[in-house]
Structure formats: C-alpha cells, structure tokens
Amino acid sequence: MAGGAAILAVLVWRVGTGPLVDGLRLTTGWSLAAAFAITSLTTLCCAWRWRLVAGGLGVEVPLRTAVAAYYRSQFLNATLPGGIMGDVHRAVRHGHEVGDLGRSLRAVAWERASGFAVQIVLTAGVLVLLPWPAGSLVPSVAVTVIAAVALIAVLIRRRLTSRIGRAFTSDLRDAVLAPRAWPGIVLASTVAALGHAAVFLIAVRATGADVSLARLLPLALVVLTASAVPTNIAGWGPREGAAAWAFSSIGLGAPLGLTVAVVYGVLALAATLPGAVVLVVARRSAVYA
C-alpha cells in the first residue's frame, strides 16, 4: 500500500488533481457498456486458463464455477489492497471445496504466472514490431523478459533438490507445459491481454485523444504489464504511474496518461461488479444453508 500511495502522491504533486477529476468526468455510459462486454470475454478466457492449469494438477474446476469465482476474485482484486487478495480467496475457497488446499493454491499461482508470462512476451513483441517513437521503452521491457527467462532457465537447470524444487518442475511440466494445456493457456492469455488493452483504448478514446492504434497498443500493453505489480491500493498506483511515464515518453504528456489511467480504472472496476453479485449471493447462501 505504501508503494501505491507514494506513486499517487508524486503524481498529484507533479501534475495536480485535474487529470484525476477529468478521468472521473469523462467516463460515459457507452464506454462502461463496452468495457463490461469485453471483460465478460476476458473473464471467460481467464477462467478457462485456470481450469486447464487446475486440471493438470488434479484439482478440477467446472467452467461455470470457474467463471463465477474469477469474477469474484477480480472484484476483490479491484477493491482490496495489493491486487492479489481476490486470487488468494479464489484459491483458498477452491481448496476447501476439493479438499486439497496446497494444489489449489499452486493452481492459481501457476495460472496467474503463466498469464503474466504470455503478456510480457506479447508486450515485448509489440514493442519490437510496431513502429513508434518511444524506443526507450524497448530496452526496459527486453531486460525484464530476458531476466525472467534466465531465472526460469536457472531454476529448471538446477532442478533444485528440495521437495519444493521437485514440485516446481513437476507442476511446470504437468500443468503449464503439458500438450493438453499450453496451447489453450497461450490462446486464453493472448485474448485476455488484448481484451484488457481494448478497454484501455476505449479509455483513451473517452478522453478525446486522437492517437493512432499503432501508438496506443504498445502503450496499453506497457501500462497493463506495470499494473500487475502487486504494490497498489485497490488497483491504483503503479498503473497511473506507468501511464503518466509512458504517455510522457512519446510526447503526449503525463496529465493525459494519468487521465486515461483513471478512466481505465473506473471502467475496470465497473466491469467487475458481477463479482460483487457473486460474493453477495455466496454469502447469503452460506447464511441460509
């Protein structure tokens, strides 16, 4: 929470509160409806990815249950500090349902990690392929990708002698890289990442900024990758900092980046409201059971 608060404090200090107010004012009904529709698709993809990983670990979850649980976890992530509490809740609840908390926790961890890995690779690819003026971003993302790949390679090569190390390589082989799983994981993660980027583009259009898709797509992916860092206050902090920096780096200005990030934050929160319904229904069912 301290990290997210510090980022927001610096942004307000440097650009003022105007972009924050503008972001709230520019959120419209059509943008909310579009974000809701797109998020329903991305949620379905993420739930399917979770189902594939969980199946590989022997803790099956029906797709319908997975979609409801994923909506609930997204809502909790968007309203609680850190951005991962909803995933923890999803893992623990599923673990209690199947009677294996350890495997359920690992399934959620691998599901989120595999999705993030695909997003990083996709972001790096877009930065390299699409011509745009923010070339300074390419080395940063490239270093991140290389470091992540190197870390995974070292861990796999050593294979570690501990029980945790053996579980790591076993999970990677059975749940993520298995022939039955990895194509679906890559497809679902790609569609989900592009869906989130589409909501970001809607946020840009809501501000009235006239920017080409070739410039906006790399920006969106960079900001969304940074927003996955779990040092935020209900989703706020790193996303706004990354947006202000990225927009400024290509000459669009930090205030516009902050405004876009605020609009996106509102759209993302509104699109997860079905998760609040799932949460309330589950609590009422538990009370009357």
Rank of each mutant, 00 (worst) to 15 (best):
A178T: 06
S136V: 13
R159L: 12
T169Q: 02
V118A: 06
A148Q: 03
V121E: 05
I156T: 14
V204H: 11
V126I: 02
V121N: 06
A142S: 11
R158F: 10
V118L: 01
R180G: 15
G195I: 03
I120T: 10
L160Y: 04
A193G: 02
L194Y: 06
A192K: 04
I156C: 09
G195R: 03
L194E: 09
V141D: 05
A134Q: 11
A192D: 06
A148P: 01
L172S: 03
A192I: 03
L155D: 05
F200Q: 01
T161I: 13
L137H: 05
A198Q: 03
A150E: 09
L155K: 10
V149L: 12
S114W: 03
H196N: 10
A175F: 08
V121G: 06
R157A: 14
F116L: 15
A197Q: 00
H196A: 09
A148N: 02
P133F: 00
S140H: 11
W182T: 00
S140W: 15
P183F: 11
S162F: 11
A148K: 00
A148T: 03
W132E: 04
A134R: 09
G195V: 04
S189I: 01
L160D: 07
P131I: 04
A203V: 03
V149S: 08
T190S: 00
G125A: 15
S170T: 14
A188T: 15
V199P: 04
A203Y: 01
R157S: 08
V126F: 00
A178W: 10
A150D: 09
L172E: 05
V128N: 06
A198C: 02
S136L: 14
L137R: 02
L130D: 03
V176R: 03
A142F: 13
A198H: 03
I202S: 09
A175S: 05
A198V: 00
F116E: 14
V138A: 13
P139A: 08
I185S: 06
L129P: 10
G184Q: 02
I185A: 07
L127F: 12
A147G: 07
A150L: 07
A134N: 11
I152N: 09
R205F: 08
S170E: 15
I202T: 13
L201D: 06
D171Y: 04
W182R: 02
V204S: 11
R166M: 08
G135I: 13
F200K: 01
V126D: 01
S189P: 02
Q119P: 07
V204L: 11
V128Q: 12
G135S: 13
A188Q: 12
L129W: 14
A197I: 00
V145R: 15
T190V: 05
T123S: 10
G125K: 14
L122E: 00
T144P: 00
L151M: 13
S170M: 15
G184M: 04
D171M: 07
G125E: 13
V145P: 09
G115W: 04
L172K: 04
L177I: 03
S136T: 12
F168G: 10
R180F: 12
P133E: 04
R180Y: 09
I152E: 11
R157Y: 09
L160P: 02
